[in-house]
Amino acid sequence: MPAELTKRFLDPAVLAEISSLDLVARTVVEGFIAGLHRSPDFGFSQEFAEYRAYTPGDDLRHVDWNVFARTERAYLKRYRGETNTEVMVLLDASASMGFASGAVSKFDYSKFLASALVYLAHLQRDSTGLVVFHDDVADFVRPSGRQGQLMRLLHAIDRARLGKRTNFSKPFFELQQALKRRGITVLISDFFESAENIVRTVEPLRFRGNQLVLFHVLDRGELEPRLPQAALLIDMETDEAIEASPEYARTEYRGRIGAHLDHLRSKAHAAGFEYFFLPTDRPLDEALREYFTVRRHRI
């Protein structure tokens, strides 16, 4: 990516200095939208479905005023998602998400991402919910499109705190029970688990007609760890300790984590998931724009 283009996007470190997640989400979303040709149907549930005659009680904001001008009848513009799409954001709050080699930790970055997604979904009038989990469900906001849902979601994201270790099995089982409608499920995690295990755990969501999107968030320090000298590494989730040498971190580790990324991407695609890799040093608006561009072309 050209440097001048990169400069247009927001450095995650800048986002970290904004205390309000609302503002972060607005900044990110408006930022990546501003970089595109404005499109009214840009979002998760972007498929136009039909016009419906206005009935008292409908939200006037959804009235298609162009049609009204031409026909003097009020019609509401309806999208496919409004009828059957529900966006559920699953945010991993395990201890490993607290890792940071720079100004922004994976968890902060994931919070920004989750905020941006729920904000975007709100703009699209999608029914949006949130699950914060680690080895258990830490917080759950039921999907809804009602007034105030956005703020509820943002508050839930804001108060999310790191837990202990990641355990997909238990929260996903409970989530399967909670999700009654098919929709889009967004899973934000560092996926420090075997690809098979991840896919096996989240695959049941796919069987219910859900679209599953995996946002794989990793720190640059996890991809290319820098050890100036031999060090005793302590696992943030298990407190397990292991001695690591700079040479191993420089060579074999990078190969292994690269293989893990490739394998997870491959397995996710094979299982029909969308997989998107997000290093924390990448501008979030730029990443989202790329993701949605790819997604629109795919659809």
């Binding site: 060090a231 302590i234 001695e243 191993y248 292994r256």
Partner: peptide, 18 residues
């Protein structure tokens, strides 16, 4: 020089003794 690291799943104990 102990350091906290997100996950040690890609480190192998048999090779890592400094």
């Amino acid at each position: 020089n102990p350091q906290r690291f997100s996950s040690l799943m890609f480190f192998e104990r048999r090779l890592q003794s400094s």
